[in-house]
């Protein structure tokens, strides 16, 4: 009964949100600045959702997501400028390239934990950037790859920010939907079980090493997709865009928004894209805002805005944040004041 009400509320909310997001660019059709901010939010929303699959659900610690983002962007750039391959084929190919590369990181490090794993992902991200930077003819080194043609759909060019907004919205929706579906299955439950207690997960018949590699490959697929979109958006890729800072920005957004929830990374991306824009007059000092936002979040709500208590593992009916069970033994009966 209550859960049906909640589900209805949720459907209404999602419908309103979808309408608003679809209508939004109509009001700002000529305002490229606003559209570009919205596009950035979507781009980071995909990257954050992707990172959250690892850091939030399987509980491993990856801070090198920028490397996989880079692989996606360069794959798209090379395929489009040299082989004339368009965005629609590129998107899944870039995702797969990032996943394949993640195996190079995942297989040797699957048994590492905590800070050791974090350091490996950091190093891997830098290695990818340096390979790209020193890739000679293939990646054109520090000059980057310019002249990526705009995306098109059935011969119809999607060159403007107005069009790219809808493409970003579509990709974000697809990413979130697919990730949510996978989380709400035996695969997602296995990842969460690994986060909660790896030994117990193994005792329950989950091959934990294989599932961690699987998790990394699934997550980095979306970083590759985001990279592909980025290449077609900016028509130019360069190794400069994929510094470690980029990885930290993604991580910061996920931490502020909340690990281990579907909405968290989306909200984190929105907040940390918008705040620096508001404080544009601070020029270079704006970057301090990232640090401040993370510090404030860690202090006031360490689980992030949406994370923590309610772990959104999918099943809306069963995941209510119920507090004490009815006859929790030692405590006296709660007064019913609800707090």
């Amino acid at each position: 009964m209550i859960s049906r009400l909640v589900r209805q509320e949720r459907t209404v909310f999602l419908a309103l949100l979808a309408t608003a997001l679809l209508a939004f660019p109509l009001a700002f059709r000529e305002n490229n600045y606003i559209l570009r901010i919205a596009i950035n939010i979507f781009l980071y929303a995909i990257l954050c959702t992707s990172l959250n699959m690892i850091n939030g659900y399987s509980g491993q610690f990856n801070i090198g997501q920028a490397g996989f983002y880079c692989i996606g962007a360069y794959t798209a750039a090379i395929l489009s400028t040299r082989h004339g391959i368009g965005i629609w084929i590129s998107l899944p190919v870039c995702g797969l390239m990032a996943s394949v590369a993640s195996l190079l990181l995942g297989i040797p490090t699957a048994r590492l934990k905590g800070i050791f794993l974090a350091m490996s992902t950091l190093g891997f991200s830098e290695i990818i950037r340096l390979i790209v930077l020193n890739g000679g003819e293939f990646t054109r080194g520090p000059m980057g790859i310019p002249g990526i043609p705009p995306a098109s759909l059935f011969g119809w060019e999607l060159g403007t920010n107005f069009h790219m907004y809808y493409l970003a919205l579509l990709l974000t929706a697809l990413t979130v939907l697919i990730c949510a579906n996978v989380l709400d299955s035996r695969i997602g439950r296995a990842w969460i079980a690994i986060r909660e207690d790896e030994l117990a997960a193994r005792a329950m018949g989950i091959p934990t090493v294989r599932y961690k590699i699987y998790n990394l490959a699934f997550s980095t697929f979306w970083a590759g997709v985001a990279g592909c979109y980025y290449a077609f958006l900016s028509n130019f890729v360069s190794a400069d865009s994929f510094h470690l800072d980029e990885g930290f920005v993604i991580l910061g957004m996920v931490l502020v928004g909340g690990l281990g929830s579907i909405a968290g990374p989306l909200i984190g991306a929105a907040i940390l894209v918008i705040i620096p824009e508001i404080f544009r007059f601070l020029a270079e000092y704006r970057l301090i805002l990232y640090g401040v936002a993370i510090l404030i979040t860690m202090h006031l709500r360490p689980q992030g805005i949406c994370g923590g208590g309610v772990m959104d593992t999918g099943d809306a009916g069963s995941v209510r944040d119920q507090d004490e069970p009815p006859d929790s033994e030692p405590e006296p009966a709660t007064g019913g004041d609800g707090t």
Partner: peptide, 21 residues
């Protein structure tokens, strides 16, 4: 396990569902 090793943030039914893996 001797020292309880449940999946703490999951509900009771979800814990059991993991067991079916």
């Amino acid at each position: 396990f001797q020292n309880i090793k449940l999946f703490k943030t999951m509900t009771a039914i979800e814990n059991v569902r993991v067991g079916f893996h």
